[in-house]
Deep mutational scan, measured.
Amino acid sequence: MASQGTKRSYEQMETDGERQNATEIRASVGKMIDGIGRFYIQMCTELKLSDYEGRLIQNSLTIERMVLSAFDERRNKYLEEHPSAGKDPKKTGGPIYKRVDRKWMRELVLYDKEEIRRIWRQANNGDDATAGLTHMMIWHSNLNDTTYQRTRALVRTGMDPRMCSLMQGSTLPRRSGAAGAAVKGVGTMVMELIRMIKRGINDRNFWRGENGRKTRSAYERMCNILKGKFQTAAQRAMMDQVRESRNPGNAEIEDLIFLARSALILRGSVAHKSCLPACVYGPAVASGYDFEKEGYSLVGIDPFKLLQNSQVYSLIRPNENPAHKSQLVWMACNSAAFEDLRVLSFIRGTKVSPRGKLSTRGVQIASNENMDAMESSTLELRSRYWAIRTRSGGNTNQQRASAGQISVQPAFSVQRNLPFDKPTIMAAFTGNTEGRTSDMRAEIIRMMEGAKPEEMSFQGRGVFELSDERAANPIVPSFDMSNEGSYFFGDNAEEYDN
């Protein structure tokens, strides 16, 4: 993207840094990872977990959730003011799984939030270390993106479920800051804005008074975040219109849905970061690795190297396929839920299948599930090659597409044709070009129609051997075009429920 120079890199967003050079960025990201790792080690000690239990991804998720809940100030305040039966607002906890007599047992633990905050700050040299908290939120978000298709949420806001490739980060909490905003897809931002506008339509006082002023500035800020994701002048001009509207209503909703559809071809720039579970960072720190000293990046080879040398386990339900569970977590670790499966298959070195073909449910185990038949197995999170994460949407291309997802959002900077089903997408653009945004709409449609099938995206960008740390010898991959490109292809993934 041309304006790259004016933006802070995501590592800076990730670490609240002012302008830093590459070495400083690597050190501050490393410091953040160190903090998460030290916190995780301490929690495993508190909970008396064995090494194996500490490497269980379900335990990692519970521990991450506990610290996120302990620092969720708004919710904590709300819980104190609106006490609900049987919930102690000062405590947080969740299921911890232990191996007892050759069987997995679930144990519900409860801790004072104050105590968890103390352990977290102690692991982070006394700081609140917001960057580390956001990092864990993005890992949870990436896992949700890989596990669930947001059909219901899309339909509720009037969008087409086939636009799911635009929904990265749709389950990120509001408090995820600049680093969170960077990884949100165009569809996620559109959905947040539509929800806001709908509230304004239904509630006369939404934009009024002292609160209304705050609401208005939040609305304009979200519009600017979305505008910054678009790469064409016409899309940005249309966002200006939406932002400046005196009284946002149905016309703005129409414009936003139009823009979301246009992003299936004229893709937005959305950041991709490899955020790993805390149970990967903990053992690495415990083994003596100093992330701050060595430096770390979320968008280069580092996460690949770390996963190459990590042992992570997962509980497996009786009829689940461990290899499929591994694929789910591998995609989440690489922030690749909406990437082209052919690119992923090449990088991973084994075939990556669409969601609907995987015999696996989510990673988390519900409290009512029976533990008797639970097994555990090693997650295979290694890769054959590594590639640089991208934040450009890439230019655009036609490809055989599917009944489910009709476009992709690249996660890796790797040369390819970008699949999208042009006739299906263009069919949504018939007729409606009147109104105050008509010239911009016409211009956007013209650009979409001009998108050429034979153009290559990320020209000359390749993948790298894991021994090639400096990215000196790019390998331009070859793809098996007979395979499906979309992950949520004609899909039956479970729906995400809060």
Rank of each mutant, 00 (worst) to 15 (best):
K273V: 04
S60N: 13
A129D: 00
R118D: 02
E64L: 12
E210K: 08
R416N: 07
S359A: 14
S457A: 11
L306S: 09
N211F: 09
N417D: 05
V190K: 00
A387L: 00
A428K: 11
I41Q: 13
G485Q: 03
T437F: 06
I119P: 01
Y496L: 03
E252G: 06
N205H: 03
I138L: 14
R117A: 07
I138P: 09
E484P: 15
R416Q: 09
C164R: 02
T23A: 13
Q364D: 00
F230A: 09
S274A: 05
T23D: 00
C333V: 10
R156K: 06
Y111Q: 06
K293C: 03
S141W: 06
E294Y: 02
F489H: 12
D497G: 12
A182R: 00
A284F: 12
I96P: 03
Y289H: 15
S217T: 15
L418V: 15
Y281C: 09
T45A: 06
G450Q: 11
A129I: 05
C275Y: 06
A373C: 13
D101R: 08
C333Y: 09
E254G: 11
D255M: 08
D34I: 14
D51A: 13
A85T: 14
Y289R: 13
S359C: 12
A278C: 14
H140C: 09
H140A: 03
G54L: 03
M43Y: 08
S377N: 13
Q231P: 06
N397K: 15
T437N: 14
S383W: 01
A182M: 05
G209T: 08
T151F: 04
A260L: 05
W330A: 05
G462Q: 02
E114L: 12
R65P: 09
L166C: 01
Q459V: 02
P419R: 05
Y313L: 12
I138R: 01
Q12N: 14
S69A: 13
K103M: 11
K357F: 04
M189L: 15
G5P: 11
A234E: 06
D72A: 07
A129S: 14
A179D: 02
L49F: 14
D160N: 11
V343K: 07
L298R: 09
L226R: 07
H324S: 12
M43R: 05
R174C: 03
G356C: 08
M43W: 02
R382Q: 02
I116P: 03
E292H: 13
T15L: 15
P173G: 03
R436Q: 01
S367H: 15
I365G: 05
V29F: 09
S353I: 14
Y10K: 12
A336S: 11
S359T: 10
S310A: 15
R221S: 08
N125G: 13
A403N: 14
R55S: 07
G490P: 00
Y40D: 12
D145N: 10
G158E: 03
F479K: 01
D302K: 08
I197P: 01
L328R: 06
K273H: 05
H82R: 11
S245N: 05
A233K: 04
V29S: 07
F291W: 11
P410M: 12
F258K: 09
A401G: 01
A263Y: 02
G431V: 11
C279L: 13
R436H: 13
E46Y: 02
G37W: 11
